[in-house]
Nucleic acid binder design. Structure first.
Length: 228
DNA sequence: TGCCAGGCCGGGT
DNA sequence: ACCCGGCATGGC
């Protein structure tokens, strides 16, 4: 990617509007995403932690184990022995540290919301996000995933794929950090939860298929046209 | 076989 | 303010 191409893009695609153009292209290509995969807010929240740097296929196995053990419940996870929980989530990797992280989350729900996840999720976005970020093991992406997909709050989830795709297509600088990218989407997207949910999901689809770290197949990528 | 996955933390410069 | 090592299984 030459700097010349970047300059051309910056002139032709105003930064305040290209997130919505991006959304238009991807929605026409993929349609409604149906994300987040999961049947309940609790499942979404647990999945958000379990999928940290981990393929979703492995997270499914872990969640399945939790369900089969009858442990898909805030208080049961809270009461569970850490090593017992770790054994259930073993397929999702980092199982010891993730066992602690899940327990940190449910402990907050038990201690401050009497075990009522919905009470936590019905807080205002700002409060909810800060509360989640205060939990050891929950960073910005995990917190935003829970806010957006479990609580239906208007906050855009930025992940490694998002940053990589934007950079590869000359739409963001490699030096941009999480907040820079998130601000760009918050300023450029229509404030509708379905838009936020679908666009993040679609960027993950694109990332998985066309933008893995070592190679990029832009000839068939739905965003290919943006490069030429 | 080796690389990668929908990060995050803690310690060090 | 960055940079890095550690955490770990399963798929391609």
């Amino acid at each position: 990617m030459s700097s010349n191409t970047k300059e051309t893009l910056r002139k032709t695609i105003p930064e305040a509007t290209f997130p919505s153009q991006l959304y238009g292209i991807l929605f026409r290509h993929y349609g409604p995403s149906g994300w987040w995969p999961g049947d309940s807010p609790l499942e979404v929240a647990l999945g958000a932690v379990l999928t940290q740097n981990t393929a979703w296929i492995n997270v499914e196995k872990a969640i399945d184990n939790i369900k089969k053990a009858g442990m898909l419940d805030v208080e049961r996870i809270y009461r569970a022995d850490p090593s017992e929980l770790a054994a259930l989530i073993r397929p999702s990797g980092y199982y010891n540290i993730k066992s602690r992280r899940l327990k940190n989350l449910v402990t907050l729900i038990m201690d401050r919301y009497a075990g009522d996840l919905d009470a936590l999720l019905s807080e205002d976005l700002g409060d909810l996000r800060l509360t989640l970020l205060g939990i050891n093991g929950i960073g910005k992406e995990t917190a935003d995933s829970i806010c957006c997909y479990a609580a239906d709050k208007l906050t855009f989830v930025v992940d490694a794929y998002t940053a990589r795709i934007l950079e590869r297509h000359g739409l963001a600088d490699a030096r941009w950090v999480y907040d820079d990218i998130q601000n760009m989407f918050h300023e450029g997207l229509p404030p509708r939860i379905e838009v936020y949910k679908d666009l993040h999901a679609h960027l993950v689809f694109v990332g998985k298929e066309y933008c893995r770290s070592k190679r990029m197949l832009c000839n068939t990528c739905p965003l290919g046209g943006w490069l030429t």
